[in-house]
Design a binder for these strands. Sequence first.
DNA 1: GATGAATGAGGTTTCATTCAT
DNA 2: GATGAATGAAACCTCATTCAT
Lengths: 232, 232, 232, 232
Amino acid sequence: MCNTTKFIKMLEKRYKEAFERASEERQELILETGIEEFSSKGYEKANINVIAKKCGISIGLMYKYFSTKEDLFITCLQRGMKILDDILDDIMASDDKILVKTEKVIRATCFHSKKNANYIKLYNEIAASKNKEMVDILATAIEESTSQKYITSITQALEKGDVRSDLDPKLFAFFLDNLLTTLQFSYTCDYYRKRFEIYTGIDVNQMDDEQVVSQLLSFIESAFTYEKKKQQ
Amino acid sequence: MCNTTKFIKMLEKRYKEAFERASEERQELILETGIEEFSSKGYEKANINVIAKKCGISIGLMYKYFSTKEDLFITCLQRGMKILDDILDDIMASDDKILVKTEKVIRATCFHSKKNANYIKLYNEIAASKNKEMVDILATAIEESTSQKYITSITQALEKGDVRSDLDPKLFAFFLDNLLTTLQFSYTCDYYRKRFEIYTGIDVNQMDDEQVVSQLLSFIESAFTYEKKKQQ
Amino acid sequence: MCNTTKFIKMLEKRYKEAFERASEERQELILETGIEEFSSKGYEKANINVIAKKCGISIGLMYKYFSTKEDLFITCLQRGMKILDDILDDIMASDDKILVKTEKVIRATCFHSKKNANYIKLYNEIAASKNKEMVDILATAIEESTSQKYITSITQALEKGDVRSDLDPKLFAFFLDNLLTTLQFSYTCDYYRKRFEIYTGIDVNQMDDEQVVSQLLSFIESAFTYEKKKQQ
Amino acid sequence: MCNTTKFIKMLEKRYKEAFERASEERQELILETGIEEFSSKGYEKANINVIAKKCGISIGLMYKYFSTKEDLFITCLQRGMKILDDILDDIMASDDKILVKTEKVIRATCFHSKKNANYIKLYNEIAASKNKEMVDILATAIEESTSQKYITSITQALEKGDVRSDLDPKLFAFFLDNLLTTLQFSYTCDYYRKRFEIYTGIDVNQMDDEQVVSQLLSFIESAFTYEKKKQQ
DNA sequence: GATGAATGAGGTTTCATTCAT
DNA sequence: GATGAATGAAACCTCATTCAT
């Protein structure tokens, strides 16, 4: 139905038929356990035998469900993507103006960050992946729908005159997402959390979210709205 | 002399004395080879024996130079940091206004990106590291000096009235660096490059840098300069 | 039931669950092979890969059974302790007088020495270990029950007037065990065997055990029994 | 001159001529450093490169002095033997009766134990060595002279009627040395120290030496002196 | 469907010894 | 005499994957 799933489907199934036949609870258990392991240890150090044991299933069965470690990882990632994309979908499907949408996305980022921390960590994991072929596929699956939403929204705003006339919708969408992505990581990934603390002096979990939201919103709002008078 | 080196020094030497006694060419060869391997394969998959072989030295000698794989990695990283920090230092030491500095940094990012791609990839590597203890140390070493420079510049600009009065210098410095960091990665790291292409439709290497520079600059300029009139 | 096992249990299991699931023959094969290697080469020079190969199993499986080389060693040691302790238990559980027990222990030492040589060599191995922490645990596991048996027996003999009144039960138990331990080593460990030959002029294997038994027994008997008249 | 050196010489020099040409201080430094390392780490884990560094000499020079690690170890051992043997020599050279000599040896063991701990640890090290060929040579070098002294003393005492008539001088010398050797180890080697504590309840360093001396002496005295009336 | 025993290549690290200077 | 850079075999340990049951 929605745009999102279309792109996720670009990633073919990476699980075997046996996995589909497993009970939904089991599917969920396996994927959540995998997500937990991959996000806390990283892809290389995560151990598929350990994941199987934590799920209470045999390693043999795990390989009946997934052909390789990579397939398990990708399937875990798809689950995370689905959940995160649904949140974004809800926000972007509305008729709100771009800045209202932006505010909602920022708030969603701050407020959902704890619950979905592991999914976001998986994104961070692939953002550092060195498997070029895989990375291209994943980047497309992850970013294509998001970027379309942002670009479309900005383009419409441009047409309506809601944003300044000299902006390039694609690049501005890109900058917007850069800010949001980094913020997400700052709430969830070790390195970015420390970095946030270095900049602000405050651990992100003790930070007043409202302060972050309002400052980032005003940053983006101004960036989108005001055109420089005539320079030079 | 400058602030930067002070923070780099927070990371003590991670090489052994024997390494200091090696010829400068060899030191350089080892570090560059290490950087090449770590940035292309990632920390886990990089192989010390392979690095040693590529350098034409025995594995035993490698361990005379570095106690562990981690020490070699950190030393490689320090080399990258030194080089990248020097560039930033040059720019930030000037008396230019904040937006001029910003423009210079953006340009430096675009233009130096190819030469220093591997150093930047190392940053990306640690940004995804799961070794909390290490990550905190590295984040401090890497971000502390940069953040200070940005925050100081913005604070001064605020005092001089060069930027709008309602901004929080720390958070705005943070947003600024987020945009620059993501841009850097977009020029160098596989995932971010693909993402850039998804947003803009163009591979970053065939992109007109000037377009990116001017759009990002105008984005930041507006964000920094214009205050919303009356917030309803 | 008996005191002995209580103390052996102080050493928790050092094998993994997979080892328990292996067939008894395999368990025995692995431990006996390990004992053979450790007792003939010493802990440091014994090679896990070699032990695995001699057992006809892969190194990977060996690590499914034991987490580390040390764990394998300790488990081998526990097997040796169990067997040796059972022998001592049988003897000490009787109602015999202390000197009768002593004679039985001496005979057991001489007669069992060939069959159990390797177990005793393991004791010798840890007696020279430099791993303080481990040594304290092992010493306790090995000596605690034996010492209790000796001290209790001597204390009872003291109460009954079977031994002289001026002896310190603890120290005499200690001296007694010193003589027995050294005798054990003399039957089994290279250095002590040579030393025995140097003292007696005869290789321990060609020695008339009866001669050793009677002389040691009369040595201990006199030491335990006769009090010096008036110490000038 | 004395008996002792005769047997020590059975061990040919295990150092190269260059070592003889080194200054006496250096010789001493190297051997004491080696003794410290070998006694604390054990033969296998002691590292010849580390020993060289701790001596402030190059590894190359170390190999000018000693052909192999084993040679260095043996030479260290010889030094320890020389010192310990000299102490024993002084005691055994007197005209004292066997029991007086015994008392002196026991006292020497208790009182010298701290100063010479490392030498004794080396003995413990070779007592667990698995190199049969080496062990035989070392056992001879170490035990031959000691055993002769004890056996001679006891034989003379037997002739003079100072000890009971039914003892076998060789075996009784052997038992005597067993008690003394174990006591030595109890003062110095980790395993035996813990074992002493298990038997007596007291750490050997907080023990009243006089108590140990008097009990051991009375143990040996009775063992040597009193003959069983007629058994059976 | 489900198990888990079994594999073995491959990675990091150590250290006795050599040798050019 | 003295240095210390250099070697590389060998040890311990990990883990994705297979397959007989």
